[in-house]
């Protein structure tokens, strides 16, 4: 997941209840939209470069995908 233009959420974690409560999982939050974050002097350009790289991949996947459309209701 890329949030905004600066934050990447990566790792094994699926966005499901078992993943949060029971499974063994790991999750990384890389980057931040601020000048400092949790005690780290943020290099904003580098965060944007990393987030941009993975955003390109998400955009590539979306461009390559069929948009989902809800099924038509049955004809009366």
């Amino acid at each position: 997941m890329v949030i905004g233009d600066s934050t990447v959420v990566a790792g094994s974690f699926n966005y499901t209840e078992p993943a949060n409560l029971f499974n063994d999982e790991n999750l990384l939050v890389c980057g931040a939209p601020y000048e400092t974050s949790e005690g780290v002097e943020v290099n904003r350009d580098e965060c944007k470069r990393l987030a941009g790289h993975l955003t390109e991949e998400i955009d590539r996947i979306l461009a390559d995908s069929e948009p989902w459309r809800p099924p038509r209701p049955p004809e009366r």
Binding site: D24, E25, V29, E38, V40, E41, V42, E46
Partner: peptide, 21 residues
């Protein structure tokens, strides 16, 4: 914990311990 990886803050979480949600 959050680490300074060359100017990119990297926060490491494990489930279920840290409730990543």
């Amino acid at each position: 914990k959050t680490f300074d990886v060359g100017g990119v803050p990297v926060k490491v979480l494990f489930a279920p311990d840290h409730g990543p949600e």
